[in-house]
Structure formats: structure tokens, C-alpha cells
Simulated scan of single mutants.
Amino acid sequence: MLGRTANGLFWMFRYLERAENTARLLDAGLRMALTRDLVTAEEEWRSVIATSGQKASYEAKHASYTGMQAWNFMLREKGNPASILSMFGLVRQNARLARNAISGELWEAINENWLVVEEQLSKPVGENRVLDTVATIRRAGTLAHGAMSGSMLRDEGFHFARAGTFIERADSIARILDIKYYLLLPSLSYVGSSLDTGQWDTVLRSVSGDRAYRWLHAGQIDARGICEFLILDDRFPRSLAFCHSALRENLAALARLHGAEGESNALMRDADTRLNDLSIDEIFEQGLHQFLIDFTKSNSAIGEAIATDYRFLA
């Protein structure tokens, strides 16, 4: 497979996952802001923007963090390359570049959802539409992943697409965890309070993990238990452990197809060993925020190594 085609598949699914997870961040911010007064709600939106990595570009355009201003910036702001509208445009652009390597069903899912998202984001999104818009974006990601799973050959194109998905998903879940633990909790005095519990519940809902967690933990909302679930429980498809396991399998499959391992395989093994050797107590002892920073750096390095190993720009 040509490096440009592999690059198109990898980034098509990275942008798709990034758009979906930006929508999940927005959903978390919306639900958290509903529980706060106006001043504190602005701090919530400041945290959401910072966690999405858009703080500098946002503050270059806006002086305050009102809800409608913040979510429209993340959804559709012109000149914001990290907006969901921009990312969906890049999903479609990369799908076109890799058109011969994807199924007709996947192309239809991408193209039809692009048209729906483009129409919904053609004008500013008000408070009465924002939750429906976020749900549409999340649904678009689900439909595209379903089309890929049900219609694509399990060849190298499939594995590049899946590698892009899980690199991006792991990064997004780490950021969503960080928004709660490091940025949103206003004071240690809130730990264990109803506010703290409500925020953790919102984090679970934002990653579609609330039902699974409650089933496993008899409905008890506990910060340590939720962190263990989202970091180390490889049964949950959005946990960091699951993302690493799936990424390792896809990189191993690519190495077999190409007849050799690359730097990405070595980095993946190292990262996998570090994660598998940790307990939740050890993660809390070193500091959850520091663990998440280290994890995202390692995850980013693996993504860069994949691009080098398979000559994405060749």
C-alpha cells in the first residue's frame, strides 16, 4: 500500500475519532455547567477548551468563556482548524484520498454524515440545539465505525484505520480524565462530595461507560474505581488498557503483512509493559495528572513512529 493511502486511512479515522471525542468533551462540559452558577460555569468551559488543546486559539478570538461562545468555537468557528466542522471536512478529504482502499458502505457513511453535520453547523448552534447536535456527531462516528467493521477486508488498510482510531481514542480518554481530576475539581474539600460524585458520573456518561461501570460496581460512584475502570479495565472498549491492547494487535498485524517490525512495535511493547505493570494505587501514588501526561506523550510518540515506519509522506 502506498504511504499516502496508508496516511489517508490512518488520519481519516484519527480525525473521525477526534471529532467524536471532542463532542464527548462538549457533552461533559454541558452537563457539568448545568450544575454550576454562571461564574463557575465559565471556569468549566475554560477547562473544556484547555483540555481540548484549543486554549491559545480560543483566547486569540474571545475574551470570556460563556457557554454558547465556547461550544460554537469548538463546533464550527471559522479559522479554528480543531473545530468539529473542520475535522469532519478532513475526514471526508482523507476518505477521498483513500477511496480505492475503503468499501462503498464506508464511503457512503462518511459522505452522508458529512452532509448532515455540515447542515447542522451551517449557522450558530443555540442552547436549544446543542445537545442534539452533539448527539448527531457521536452517532456519525458510530455509523462510520459500523460500516468499516461490517464491510472492509481485514487487510493493511483496515489495520491502519484501526491504529488511527485507537491512538486517538487513548489520547482523548486521557484528556477527558484529566479535565475532571486536574482542571475541574475546584478544591480538595470537594472530594467525596455530591459535586464530586456528580462530576465523576458525568465523566462516565461522556465516554458511554456509565452502564458498564454500574453493572460491574453495583452502582457505586467512586473516584478510584472509575479511574481503574477507565485506565486499566481492558474489557471496556474506551479504557486506556483496551486501546493499547487493540493498537498492539493492529501494529503486530501490520508488521506481519510487511514482514518486519518497526520502531512503533518496540515503543508499543514498552508502553504496554509499563501500563500492565501498574496498579491503580501506584497510579494515584505517582499522581494521576502526571500519569496522564506521561501516557499522552508515549501515545503521541507511537503515532509518530507509525508514520515513519510506513513512510506516510512518501
Rank of each mutant, 00 (worst) to 15 (best):
L278D: 15
W11C: 13
F295Y: 13
G209T: 07
N250W: 09
R274P: 00
Q199A: 11
I226K: 14
A19C: 10
G146N: 07
V48H: 10
T133C: 09
V39L: 13
F229Y: 15
P186H: 04
F291Q: 10
I167N: 07
A241E: 07
A56G: 04
E42H: 11
L278Y: 13
Y65T: 12
G303R: 10
V117P: 02
T273E: 10
A95K: 06
D37I: 08
S122W: 03
L9K: 03
L313H: 15
K55L: 15
A6D: 06
W107F: 05
K180H: 14
N100C: 03
I102N: 02
L38I: 15
A50G: 06
Q93A: 15
G29L: 03
R99M: 05
V48M: 12
R18S: 02
D294S: 14
R311N: 14
D37N: 14
E17D: 06
G150L: 07
L254D: 05
R129Y: 03
E261V: 12
S52H: 04
S172L: 03
D178Q: 12
L292K: 11
V48K: 00
T197V: 09
F88P: 02
F242L: 04
K78W: 01
S83A: 13
E119R: 14
R99V: 05
L25C: 08
D277A: 15
N94L: 08
A218R: 14
A218M: 03
D272L: 08
A109H: 03
S189D: 11
S103G: 10
T51W: 01
Q120Y: 07
D270C: 05
T133Q: 01
G225I: 04
